[in-house]
Design a protein around this nucleic acid. Structure first.
Length: 801
DNA sequence: ATGAACGCAATTTTT
DNA sequence: TTGCGTTCAT
């Protein structure tokens, strides 16, 4: 059977693959799309494919380009590959889009018009660079918030657009384009590139430089892209360029093999430029003949999968795919309704403790939520119950202020013109350089078109002498760090910058000192792990050829690469970067672990986005309410609603054995109690797979259709809470504090959820949510003709129907 | 130059 | 409600 699909099925590498996986792994050269469902062994297929290509002698390591979205995924691929084959992993280009572009630009910095020491701006740095720019040009930051400008610039780059490529449709557009242009000039002057620039510069160099492009096109015979649904326009164009398949807009047969692996149902990053449409474009533009669906799921029981399948079936724009499992139904998906977010958290804590008593590791339990703000109540409840937990997200290691400060000093050693870094530390720790002196310096620098560092000499007076002392310190440090180890460099800089001393004097500096210590460790392990000069294991090319030939695989294509040096004399593999430069790049491209520290067995708390790619035995999806999940900002148009649904799909498919969904009648949000309907997604799940832990029907609790409106307005409190709901009869004091404002906030306007109302302008509608009280009271109303709107009840004239 | 006081906004996030 | 950034007062 299997041997019909591929004569090489006997290879140990290919054992235990299902037919679809095997087909994907052994696809003949050519472009292909692999639709890989959640838990279908996608990473395994990708890595096995690479291993197979190498083992059968179809390509040498240098001919492989594998792109992932995150460092974690790249690392995993490397590790797995190294375990499969004794191969020189470093010869392959496996990494993130940005990591690979960096590698490329380090090799071709001159052609790309960059200084060899160019530094990478992360999102924070970019924002501060933009703020500085806008201040300098006196841009009204009310009208053009820096954040928005940043969004504009990043968005343009993701679409591959330079300022001159953008058409101004309004005065505001014109200004933004101008700012983009000025920002570019500033970055160029300072020798820094942002994330988008890494991609765009690489793309442009490939596009504009024939020998370079041809070299890489000839080199990368096999291009593999993971999480293809998350690629943006520019990344797609970059792949197209490297593939050599598209020449002047038309498909060019004989290009490299491009294999795109993705899942349109798990596309959840449209908001940051990801374009699912790339999948369809790829099929069309690359003339894809081979499409393989990996639908066999090895993760979850069928009640969970059926729920996921049913839910995602409500999306219209899909390539079409259904997950299946051989694992039997398993437990039903449990649904719980609580009276308040406190009660929801309390219920969850009780459930978690029970699961722990039943012997499930806490690290196999995940609590997922749509937005970070929701974690607080849950954390409090877990904390009070002394249940160990771990929250994912938040500041990462290299993003912490003290680390950024230390890095800024280090960056100045590498690149004195990096004004962003200069400004970050010129007066930190404080050394008597105030805002005025800095302004003077900036003026002088601007007038001469110099960097802040170089302009210091132009200033006299006291300000000048303090600044000169700072610059001298940096320059001396630069001298002193020549020829010493990375560890020593960092220790020296930490010491001489005054950072250590500063934090020692700070009563609350202990954590920061610890982090600075950690930075030294990070550098240490970076040097050993990245393996400067590590011995590579050579691949026995001749043997491979023979083995390939014996299996009837065409080995006539040459295996050896065309040496880069022949084509681009200034090329440099990037591996001669100084350890410091390499470390700074590493810090910018891998902001460090987002994973909370390992340690004791703890419940995992994270957003649904953060959970993508992970799996757990037990999963709680909380806050399943209209306005929260789907999020209110995404409820009005179809595309974003579909993205919310995909998000829910991702959430559901994280669970292996047990899945809980919970929603609450009331929730504290932005300091106000909100009354939310339960999520529409409940209606899209199969009843047969669900088990309601609380009575279903009542729908929306005390505000639901079952009650008369008279019961609501001033209402005698007592019976409103608790009756019939699990949350109501447990330790009420725990969340009593939550109940009080709820009662006070009982609406006086007499509206209730699901009530029909009439509005003079919008016509008839249904109340779908209420929040606030008194003059602040607002109602969300779904109008039959005008969609969903929030109306302030003190303003809007609504008549009950 | 540091802390208090005020105003404001408040999904999702990797590189 | 919270957290942040800016401004004001010491």
């Amino acid at each position: 059977m299997l041997t019909d699909l591929a004569p090489q099925a006997g290879l140990p590498l290919l054992q235990n693959l299902n037919p679809e996986q095997l087909a994907a792994v052994t696809l003949p050269a050519g472009n292909a799309l692999i639709l890989a469902g959640a838990g279908s062994g996608k990473t395994r297929v990708l890595t096995t494919r690479i291993a197979w290509l190498l083992q059968t002698g179809q390509v040498s390591p240098g001919g492989i380009l594998a792109v992932t979205f995150t460092n974690k995924a790249a690392k995993e691929m490397m590790t797995r590959l190294a375990a499969m084959l004794p191969v020189n992993v470093r010869g392959m280009w496996i990494g993130t889009f940005h990591g690979l572009c960096n590698r490329f630009l380090r090799a071709h910095w001159k052609l790309a018009g960059l200084p060899s020491t160019f530094q990478i701006l992360d999102t924070q740095d970019q924002l501060s660079a933009i703020k500085r720019l806008m201040k300098q040009f006196n841009v009204d930051d009310e009208r053009f918030p820096a954040k928005q400008t940043q969004w504009f610039i990043a968005g343009a780059k993701e679409d591959g657009l330079r300022p001159r490529d953008i058409e101004a449709r309004s005065e505001d557009d014109r200004k933004k384009i101008e700012l983009y242009q000025l920002y570019e000039e500033q970055c160029q002057r300072e020798g820094v590139v942002d994330f988008g620039e890494l991609m765009l510069r690489s793309y442009e160099l490939l596009r504009d430089n024939d020998p370079v492009r041809e070299h890489y096109q000839r080199r990368f015979r096999h291009i593999l892209i993971d999480e293809f649904q998350d690629t943006n326009r520019l990344q797609y164009a970059w792949i197209k360029m490297l593939s050599g398949a598209i020449v002047e807009g038309t498909f060019h047969p004989g290009g490299n093999s491009v294999i795109a692996v993705g899942d349109d149902d798990q596309s959840i990053y449209a908001f940051r430029g990801a374009r699912v449409g790339n999948m369809a474009d790829f099929v069309r533009e690359f003339d894809v003949r081979q499409q393989i669906k990996l639908e066999q799921n090895y993760r979850s029981y069928s009640n969970i999968l059926d729920s996921a399948n049913a839910l995602i079936g409500h999306n219209t724009k899909r390539l079409g795919k259904n997950l299946r499992t051989e694992q039997g139904p398993g437990e039903p998906v449990r649904v719980y309704e609580s009276t308040s977010d406190f009660a929801e958290a309390q219920w969850m804590v009780d459930e978690i403790r029970q699961l722990a008593r039943d012997g499930i590791d806490r690290s196999e339990m995940a609590v997922l939520y749509r937005s970070n703000a929701q974690s607080r109540v849950i954390e409090t409840a877990l904390f009070n119950a002394s249940v160990p937990y771990r929250v994912y997200g938040g500041l990462r290691f290299f993003e912490r202020a003290e680390i950024k400060h230390a890095l800024a000093y280090l960056r100045l050693l590498e690149n004195k013109d990096d004004d962003t870094s200069f400004l970050r530390v010129v007066n930190f720790p404080p050394r008597g350089i105030g805002a005025r002196s800095i302004e003077q310096l900036q003026d002088a620098a601007r007038a001469r078109g110099q960097s802040l560092h170089d302009a210091v000499g132009l200033l006299g007076g006291k300000a000048g002498s303090n600044l000169s002392a700072f610059v001298a310190k940096i320059d001396v440090l630069r001298e002193q760090t020549q020829g010493i180890s990375l560890r020593e460099i960092i220790e020296l800089v930490l010491d001489h910058s005054g950072l250590i001393e500063h934090y020692k004097a700070d009563r609350e500096g202990a954590d920061r000192l610890e982090n600075l210590d950690e930075l030294v460790n990070a550098a240490e392990s970076f040097v050993t792990q990245e393996g400067f000069g590590r011995d590579a294991v050579a691949l026995p090319v001749d043997e491979l050829r023979q083995s390939a030939a014996s299996q009837g695989i065409d080995t006539s294509r040459p295996l050896l690469d065309i040496p880069l040096a022949d084509l681009a004399p200034d090329a440099d593999t990037g591996e001669t970067l100084s350890p410091l430069a390499a470390f700074l790049t590493h810090a910018a491209l891998e902001s460090g672990d987002n994973q909370a520290k390992a340690g004791q067995d703890a419940v995992q708390l994270m957003t649904v986005h953060a959970a993508k790619g992970l799996e757990f035995d037990c999963v709680f999806i909380t806050g399943m309410e209209e306005g929260l999940f789907p999020h209110e900002n995404s409820m009005s148009d179809r595309d974003s609603l579909e993205e919310e649904r995909r998000l829910m799909y991702v959430a559901i498919t994280r669970a292996r054995k047990r899945l809980y969904l919970s929603h609450s009648q009331t929730r504290m949000l932005h300091g106000q109690t909100r009354y939310n309907l339960k999520s529409r997604f409940f209606d899209e799940l199969p009843d047969s797979a669900l088990k309601w832990l609380t009575p279903k029907n009542q729908g929306f609790g005390q505000f639901g259709g079952g009650m008369t409106s008279a019961g609501r307005a001033g209402g005698s409190s007592g019976s409103r809470f608790g009756s019939g709901y699990g949350g109501g009869n447990r330790a009420p004091e725990t969340y009593g504090s939550g109940a009080v404002p709820i009662q006070k906030a009982a609406p006086a306007h007499g509206l209730r959820i699901s009530q029909q109302v009439f509005h003079n302008k919008f016509g008839e509608g249904t109340v779908t949510a209420l929040e606030g009280s008194g003059d602040d009271a607002r109602a969300q109303i779904k109008f039959s003709r005008h969609g969903i709107k929030w109306l302030a009840l003190s303003v809007a004239k609504l008549t009950p129907v």
